[in-house]
Simulated assay, not measured.
Amino acid sequence: MAPLPKACIIGAGCSGFTTAKKLKDLGVPYDCFEMSDNIGGNWYYNNPNGHSACYQSLHIDTSKWRLAFEDYPVPAGWPDFPHHSQLLQYFHNYVDHFGLRQTITFNTAVTKAERNAEGLWDVTLSNGETRRYDVLFVCNGHHWSPRTPEYPGHFDGVAFHSHAYRTPFDPVDVRGKTVVVVGMGNSAMDIASELSQRPLAGKLIVSARRGVWVLPKYMNGRPADKAAMPPWMPRKLGLALARQTIKKTLGAMEDYGLPKPDHEPLEAHPSVSG
């Protein structure tokens, strides 16, 4: 029998360790490298690798019914939308339950990966070692690299990306200050909602290039993302009905003092916020 291919997995966040689980199930040999000292990636609050965008008050906006791994149920007593610390513990429990931790090499980053003349992958590690693999899985996520626009002019105040936000007092104490949150994505809505509480920011302004649909976490008393189209329903019809329901339930965004969206619900990634 021909030997099985050997794989390299970059990262031990939820994509990395679930890839490792599947390869282990299939008996495919692999190495998994994680630059930090533990698993969790973006959901590892104050991750020492500096790449986590997790803030102290963060609750995931995907319900536990949607985020659960198919081979490991979420705890029955969880709230519908868990806190980041619960999600990280769930990840740890998953990794330990399936015996994956001993297959992960921590405190080791992949600094370079390139195909050689044979079509294999030469992977260079932060310790200077280079190893050869048949298959490469890049599971390093996409929230670790903040994208900050460049604005003309000069600003004397404190400016930072939401990636650096931890609490209303870190990295800057916002009490009594005028705060501008740029954008209307999920992080923007979370942070704006938190800082606009009366004891915190003196004035909170949200700046956006265009309006978006801000969807609630609950509709009709149930987590909104539990709703699903019947498998027999044509996608076009299902989307039309979903949009009609959203508009009927929420009304116009302008009624909340928000700019009018230039698109239909579900045509773009929605922001989820109560």
Rank of each mutant, 00 (worst) to 15 (best):
L266K: 04
L239I: 11
M189A: 15
F33G: 09
D37E: 11
R235A: 13
K260H: 10
W144Y: 13
G11I: 01
N186V: 04
L23S: 07
T108L: 06
G99N: 13
S162G: 14
C139R: 08
S187M: 08
H97A: 15
D173Y: 05
K248V: 04
L215M: 15
L195V: 10
A2V: 14
H263P: 13
G40V: 09
N38F: 05
N186M: 05
G251S: 10
A240E: 12
I246N: 02
D80E: 15
D25Y: 00
P82K: 00
F98H: 10
A188Q: 03
H269C: 13
M184A: 12
P234F: 06
P5D: 05
D25L: 07
D134P: 08
A192G: 13
G16R: 01
R132T: 14
H97C: 11
S52H: 00
T111W: 00
L88K: 03
V181R: 03
G16C: 04
T62G: 10
G176R: 04
H51Q: 08
D262F: 03
V123I: 14
H269Y: 07
R101F: 04
W121C: 06
H263L: 09
V272S: 00
A12T: 07
M184W: 00
Y94A: 04
L4H: 04
N116I: 02
W65K: 06
V179P: 05
K24I: 08
K260N: 09
L23W: 07
A227D: 14
A76I: 09
E267L: 02
H161K: 11
W65L: 02
R147Y: 02
F33R: 04
M184G: 02
D61E: 07
M184T: 12
A159T: 12
G50F: 05
V138K: 06
N116T: 04
H51P: 00
T111A: 05
F155W: 12
F98A: 14
E254T: 15
V174D: 03
A208I: 04
G16K: 02
Y218N: 03
L26A: 10
K217D: 00
F169S: 14
L239S: 01
R175T: 15
Y94S: 02
P223K: 03
F169L: 10
K177P: 04
H97T: 15
V95I: 11
K64R: 15
Y55T: 01
Y44Q: 03
P82S: 02
H269A: 10
D173E: 11
A113V: 06
L266P: 08
K260S: 13
V158R: 10
A228F: 08
Y55C: 01
Y165C: 07
M233Q: 12
H142D: 05
E34H: 09
Y133D: 10
T148A: 10
L241H: 05
A7V: 08
H263R: 10
V174C: 14
K247N: 04
K177F: 09
P75M: 02
V180H: 01
Y90S: 06
H263T: 06
A20G: 14
V182L: 11
P223R: 05
L258R: 12
F69Y: 15
Q86G: 12
N42M: 15
T178V: 14
L4C: 01
I246R: 08
G251Y: 14
P199G: 01
Q86A: 12
W213H: 15
K6M: 09
